[in-house]
Design a protein around this nucleic acid. Sequence first.
DNA 1: GCTTGACTTAGAGTTCACTCTAAGTGGTAT
DNA 2: ATACCACTTAGAGTGAACTCTAAGTCAAGC
Lengths: 120, 120
Amino acid sequence: MEWTIQELADKVGVTSHTLRYYEKIGLLRNIRRNENGVRVYTEYDLSWLELIRCLRNTGMPIEGIRQIVELSMQGDHTIPARKQILREHRRKVEQQMEELKNYLDKIDGKLKWYSEQMPD
Amino acid sequence: MEWTIQELADKVGVTSHTLRYYEKIGLLRNIRRNENGVRVYTEYDLSWLELIRCLRNTGMPIEGIRQIVELSMQGDHTIPARKQILREHRRKVEQQMEELKNYLDKIDGKLKWYSEQMPD
DNA sequence: GCTTGACTTAGAGTTCACTCTAAGTGGTAT
DNA sequence: ATACCACTTAGAGTGAACTCTAAGTCAAGC
């Protein structure tokens, strides 16, 4: 399966601007072109993009993602380093979930208080 | 228990700038002053601030929080309306958690893949 | 008496990650 | 042929929520 820039953008929920931007800043690498110079995205590119969005949506800054991309360009011997970064990030995501859970409890507490003030 | 602006800021993890800012834009109301015009924050103010931070940290924009504050200024008859807003927000927080859980799975998948490529 | 920390207004600056524009070229589809 | 979508570079603009500065005043504590 292959996609144009607009197709991939729609599929993943970003704009074509963003895809060119990601390429320019080095998050997406070696995007193939057709005979007219038009970008052709592959499954491989999609899977990278999905990882990028996953990391971005869980709060990893661009710079951190670029590190991972950079490492993976350098070959399999950087897998342990990449794994390390990802594990660290995983920890942070777990913390986010913990935090969110506490906030949810706080919201529930407030809702309960509202109900006590005025049952509906 | 009562606090100066700096004490409250430290307690809650914001800056004194932010506390004055929140007051200026109407998130914190009727902050008491001592005889020299210095702000004195009470437990009541603290509980508001904690709610504000909870809502902000779960993604509610300033404008939404201001709505709740505005309503609560208008008396108990607005409790159902406030409750409605909070319930809606609660739903969004649950969605965030769901999303985070999915991302965590994705990260775990990638970590697993790394391990298959290079066990450590 | 000097430092520290509070106060004021008004507005400028920061951060991050996009997001878009201009101004031009060129292939594809109707 | 006329949209439409792709491409380029270079840079400007956006949004949200802070975050800080200037320039001055004032009171408390050492």
